[in-house]
């Protein structure tokens, strides 16, 4: 066990190094001179002089050879300094930290909304299999998983913010501002979860122990609530990880439309303005979190399940 953890920990920096090196190399070959981008950003509508460009290149450390630039960046990143945004000249690490909260809030709200609606819909659909309720739920799930969230977002804004003036159209801070983006973002995962729960409830209802429970004379209500539900929800909870990844992807677009100051808006802006330090820092930040989460999970699973101690996990 100890040896396993040590081995995993040893590979961690290697992977991180690989990811950061690739992202660094990729961004270094990208078009455009960062020094000029900074100068242009500081003085929109004015053309930087060659002298100013040279000075800025030196200031940004771009006059050094590429490997030296990488070593410099990496050693600083290890100390928590991911450089400064070309655009805002703010530390990248601070921006990433700030932006994490709104994104977590939005995705958790959307996921919660999706679960709250998907669980009853999925169960209803499975219990009334073939009925009208089932048909409606299945249709809604199909529509939900195929509708582009951005088109839906515009519809919501026009209806609830502009026409009815019930809710704000953009912004972050109040609960009211969260309603529309959370709805727009929750649609796709809601559809996914509904289908998943319906399938697993149907699966479970066909199992032997359910038949036994029914044979014992338990009411259908009891059967579903006590026996089927717990087992049927496991796959849904298990799929939450994948769905969370989808949610983070979807949040990029929803945050942009609703001016939600999260990581998605940050990365879109950075990608469009070629704010390389931010893109680079973001990728590395995500990699660190994913790697740590992977490691912690594997270790936790090994502790929890003795069968796994002698084999590889996750195959």
């Amino acid at each position: 066990m100890g040896a396993y953890v040590v081995r995993r920990l040893a590979t961690l920096p290697l992977l991180l190094l690989g990811i950061s090196a690739v992202s660094f190399a990729l961004l270094s070959v990208a078009p455009g001179d960062p020094a000029e981008i900074v100068l242009h950003q500081r003085n929109p509508g004015q053309m930087p002089s060659p002298a100013a460009v040279t000075a800025m290149r030196a200031e940004l450390g771009l006059d050094a050879p590429l490997p030296a630039q990488y070593v410099r960046w990496m050693s600083r990143a290890l100390a928590g300094d991911m450089g400064r945004s070309y655009v805002t000249e703010q530390p990248v690490a601070a921006q990433l930290a700030r932006r994490t909260v709104p994104t977590v809030v939005l995705t958790v709200a959307a996921l919660g909304l999706a679960l709250v609606l998907a669980v009853p819909m999925g169960i209803l659909s499975a219990r009334r299999r073939g009925g009208a309720g089932d048909a409606i739920v299945r249709l809604a799930a199909l529509v939900g998983s195929a509708a582009p969230s951005y088109a839906l977002a515009f519809g919501l804004i026009i209806l609830f913010a502009v026409k009815l003036s019930w809710l704000p159209a953009v912004g972050y801070g109040s609960a009211a501002q969260m309603v529309l983006p959370a709805i727009a973002l929750s649609l796709a995962p809601m559809a996914q979860l509904t289908r998943l729960i319906r399938a697993s409830v149907l699966d479970v209802l066909g199992q032997d122990y359910i038949r036994t429970a029914r044979a014992k004379g338990l009411s259908e209500q009891m059967v579903v609530m006590k026996h089927a539900l717990r087992n049927a929800l496991l796959p849904a909870i298990g799929a939450t990880g994948v769905i969370l990844a989808h949610l983070l992807g979807g949040a990029v677009i929803i945050e942009t439309i609703f001016t939600w100051p999260g990581l998605g808006q940050l990365i879109v802006g950075a990608a469009l303005t070629r704010d390389y330090p931010v893109v680079q820092g973001f990728v590395t930040y995500l990699a660190v979190i994913v790697l740590l989460a992977n490691l912690a999970t594997d270790i936790a699973l090994r502790v929890a399940d003795p069968r796994l101690r002698y084999e590889r996990v996750g195959v």
């Binding site: 590979t11 992977l15 990811i19 992202s23 990729l26 961004l27 070959v29 990208a30 078009p31 990880g241 990844a245 989808h246 949610l247 983070l248 992807g249 979807g250 990029v252 998605g264 990365i267 879109v268 950075a270 990608a271 469009l272 070629r274 390389y276 893109v279 973001f282 990728v283 995500l286 990699a287 994913v290 790697l291 989460a293 992977n294 590889r312 996750g314 195959v315």
Partner: peptide, 28 residues
């Protein structure tokens, strides 16, 4: 083992965001 490591790692990444970063580097 090595390949599945990479797979595990990438699998946990939101693919749209990763694609966004790549597109940001390569240009639109």
């Amino acid at each position: 083992t090595a390949l599945m490591w990479v797979v595990d790692l990438l699998l946990a990444f939101p693919s749209l965001i990763l694609a966004l970063a790549v597109a940001g580097a390569l240009g639109p």
